[in-house]
Design a protein around this nucleic acid. Structure first.
Lengths: 201, 201
DNA sequence: AGTAATTTGATACAATTGTACCATAATTCT
DNA sequence: AGAATTATGGTACAATTGTATCAAATTACT
């Protein structure tokens, strides 16, 4: 990403902070005051440079429509990789990745279920975890081995999905439970496991 | 939550969808056109009712500052509880909880690390998972048993934190690794484990 | 040192925009 | 049926706001 001049950086940082706090972007004259400038022109200039360098964008002519193009506002920065022994890598600030949590929450069809019990321990899903599911419109597009929330015989459970011909096998993610095999027509797949979330604090 | 009249519901739904798509709220006259109304007054009326019923809020006098007060835009709805046998509960639409993912991404100090290897299997954290950490300013406020990213002897690792007097024990989340006990002064706690995230698709 | 790029100040203009007021119609509720 | 609430259309106004223009000052770069 192209580097910013001090003036541009100052505005950019303030802009991000403002959006974080207010949930909407400031007007040009608000930025002017915050930067302690006496005219809107310098702000315009900085904004145009920020846009040219790919940091922001806006809808021309519309008030308060500036958006950050990168993921600063949409997620948590992934700063490195950690293994048994040590922090393997601390990624350099420049090419840092973001875990786009806000992006997930913009997908209006996703839904979540809270897990209770040990039914999924073998998939490393603990009691209390939250599983985030993507609705499945056409079960034929499902790959074998994906974990799905499926309804069979009046019971909805989370299981590994396998199809062989017209039969579907639902394999639990805990060895202590039994797999079931039924005709595909009897299985109503409600969602495919997309993410797992766990809270510690 | 108070119920909405059809006209109010129509506006509210459109509003949420607009914000989702554009990342900023519409102006009153845009809503007017979308609702196929011929004057801004009806929109004003509906907005005031939506605000009175607690669905939205805005900064008076400022353009495009409408915000949804509930978590519709901030997270994934938690629709029920799932256990080994069955979907235990499908929560009624009214009092549905949301997993506030967008809220997490607004905490600017949080950071994440990608886990590699089996160092945390006993904590149900798999290779490839992403751990989200909250910076720890004062290690004295840490409760025993929390998982932390700590730096000792030039190595940063994720371990259970225990303090007894002036000594700190760092217990790995995998039985095959050894615990270490060092003077508290030698431990630099960088973050406490706040959340775990796992991607399936 | 000299040139280019950026920043600044000042001002101006028009479109966007929130808001207010009023009378009437439609809907909902009792 | 009657009353209260909500919805609508029309209009008006002023503040907010994005944008344009120009010249001068400052900074960055070669």
């Amino acid at each position: 990403m192209e580097t910013l001049t001090p003036a541009q950086q100052e505005l950019y940082d303030w802009l991000i902070e403002y959006i974080r706090e207010n949930q909407y972007p400031p007007s040009i004259r608000q930025m002017m005051k915050a930067m302690e400038l006496k005219s809107p022109a310098p702000v315009q200039s900085r904004l145009e440079h920020l846009r040219a360098k790919g940091y922001i964008e806006w809808t021309e002519g519309k008030a308060r429509t500036i958006r950050a193009t990168n993921e600063v506002l949409r997620g948590v920065p992934i700063r490195g990789m950690i293994a048994a022994g040590s922090l393997v890598d601390a990624f350099p600030d420049a090419d840092i990745e973001y875990l786009d949590l806000a992006g997930i929450s913009l997908k209006p069809t996703y839904f979540a279920l809270r897990v209770r019990g040990d039914s999924m321990v073998d998939a490393m899903i603990d009691s209390g975890d939250i599983v985030i599911l993507k609705p499945v419109s056409d079960p034929k597009t499902l790959k074998n081995g994906t974990i799905v929330a499926a309804r069979v015989q009046d019971q909805t459970t989370l299981k590994y999905f396998h199809r062989r011909g017209s039969k579907v096998t639902l394999q639990p993610a805990n060895k202590n439970y039994e797999a079931i095999e039924v005709p595909a027509a009897q299985v109503d797949v409600q969602g495919a496991l997309a993410h797992v979330w766990r809270d510690y604090i």
